[in-house]
């Protein structure tokens, strides 16, 4: 398939490209069954845009995030990232360089902060991998990033358990911003939050994208949020790409049965049920 047809590709500069990415897990045991968590994934992400990856549990969306973050090794395929020198395979990149470009916000704001560390320590920890900082400098940097996400001095010396869920997710985002990355992978950043807090975090993410020119890969199961938040969407099911395209196209005119099923499952009247028509978006299989 030509790269132009990859999800997310457009006239703009591609900053992250995933080609034929596969991940096979072997279940424990001598003759453990092989389990395909991710099968032949292709995608390209454009600078300053948001690509949403939609799917249910077991669809491989979190595996994809971990492969892109190099937290796991792919079974096949590659992920390349745009550096000043051009596209480079992340397998060849040292961790220090990779994590300056790309960062991740984790799903569970409770589990992703070390309960025994104060907030300033958590937020400034990534920086300590790059330069030697005194305690004062670390606190200054931490305060800067906390202010960027709408927190302040009051939270600097707090422990995570003293903060609300929304505040913790802000701390998570502040930590991800600390290395000044260009790409943020947002792994279900809203699913553990209350509705009114979700809206605050969505606003924060929108503001940050506008101000800092960030590129997002937004992993979610919430189609209403995806429609509001993303430019492109990729629908996944059991490790396979099912459908991709611009958000409007895919969600207004889903071409694949599974996408339609997902849309119909959204409770209430959040999204009008799509009309069954031929869509312009690309369908991966049948």
């Amino acid at each position: 398939m030509s790269l132009v047809n990859m999800p997310g590709a457009g006239a703009n500069e591609v900053v992250l490209r995933v080609e034929n990415l596969c991940k096979v897990f072997r279940l424990p045991g001598a003759h453990g069954q092989a389990f395909k968590a991710l099968n032949q994934l292709n995608l390209a992400v454009t600078r300053g845009r948001t690509l949403a990856v939609v799917g249910e549990s077991g669809s491989g969306k979190s595996t994809m995030a971990q492969l892109v973050m190099k937290l796991q090794r792919p079974s096949a395929g590659r992920v390349s990232l745009r550096l000043d020198s051009g596209m480079r395979d992340i397998a060849d990149l040292p961790a220090r360089e990779l994590y300056r470009k790309i960062q991740m916000v984790f799903q569970d704001p409770y589990a992703s902060l070390n309960p025994r560390q104060r907030i300033w320590r958590i937020v400034s920890a990534p920086l300590c991998n790059y330069e030697r900082l005194s305690r004062d400098e670390r606190q200054q940097h931490a305060l800067h990033y906390l202010q960027q996400v709408g927190l302040g001095e009051a939270q600097l010396h707090a422990f995570p358990h003293m903060l609300s869920g929304g505040q913790r997710q802000r701390v998570n985002i502040a930590r991800a911003l600390a290395t000044k990355p260009e790409i943020l992978i947002l792994d279900e950043p809203l699913s553990a939050l209350d509705v009114s807090v979700q809206a605050q975090i969505i606003n924060l993410l929108l503001d940050l994208q506008r101000d800092l020119g960030l590129t997002y890969i937004f992993i979610s199961h919430d189609l209403a949020v995806v429609r509001h938040f993303a430019d492109q969407v990729l629908v996944m099911k059991s490790g396979d790409m099912v459908e991709w395209g611009d958000v409007d196209q895919v969600l207004e005119n889903p071409a694949h049965v599974y996408t339609r099923q997902l849309l119909q499952s959204v409770p209430g009247r959040l999204i009008d049920l799509p009309v069954r028509t031929q869509s312009a978006s690309v369908v991966a299989d049948g």
């Binding site: 509705v195 009114s196 809206a199 606003n203 929108l206 509001h228 009247r269 959040l270």
Partner: peptide, 16 residues
């Protein structure tokens, strides 16, 4: 606060 219900254009700030 629900993005699908607000009737706001995509990518605009939600009321919170």
């Amino acid at each position: 606060a629900q993005p699908g219900r607000s009737g706001l254009p995509p990518k605009s700030r939600l009321t919170t």
